[in-house]
Design a protein around this nucleic acid. Sequence first.
DNA 1: AAGCTAAGCAACCGCGGGAAC
DNA 2: TGTTCCCGCGGTTGCTTAGCT
Length: 232
Amino acid sequence: MGRKPCCEKIGLKRGPWTIEEDHRLMNFILNNGIHCWRIVPKLAGLLRCGKSCRLRWINYLRPDLKRGGFTDAEEERIMELHSQLGNRWSKIASHFSGRTDNEIKNHWNTKIKKKMKHLGLDPATHEPMNNITYQTESNQITKPNICSITKEGEENKEQTLKDEVDIGSLFEMQGNEISISSSSLYSNISRSESSSNFAETSISLEQWDLTYMTDPLVPWDFFTNLDDNIFL
DNA sequence: AAGCTAAGCAACCGCGGGAAC
DNA sequence: TGTTCCCGCGGTTGCTTAGCT
């Protein structure tokens, strides 16, 4: 009855991903596309479970990811969507290109939530909190303009620009393989550096597929020997 | 310079829905 | 039709870094 068991958890690696693992996963997905996460780690030669690979790809390796701080406009949009959708981060993320649900969730929990509390707004309901009211000279309760809260937005914009790097400078395509530029983030890497240096890119995933993917009809078996050659 | 604390974020965990068997 | 599993999602944890004393 039912399917075969999921991946064996015993012996699987956990914790932060290494450069080599990233390289392997990136290379594999760009060459093969995503068909079934369960078999991705096996075929890519990774000691990870499919779930972990999926998360790594979605939140970190996807070439269309936009990195850098959130702009005021993005924050305002997040708040607007959150007021409508609640904690449905994936739904909220679907309104942004290049932003992940995890990224938005983290930003909400670390920044926006505090900002709202500081403004006397309940992050859960988006209504003014009971014991605090904001009043204008005419005694009307107003919702403060998010854009004028702090100067943080300006800093974020600068940060975003600073963090923008051409994705092409990070990964160099060599035939069907992708290699990492020697001048890229991956030399003497630290986690925070690597994440902040990932670039905003103007191409969509679909475009990326069309541009860089190999023939999707190539059988997966074809790639089982690929791994052995990746790091030669 | 060292220790402590807060902030930021990547990664893990557990669950639910739906599909496969 | 019931069981098992995969996938995606939201919540949470824990590590790293930055800032302060």
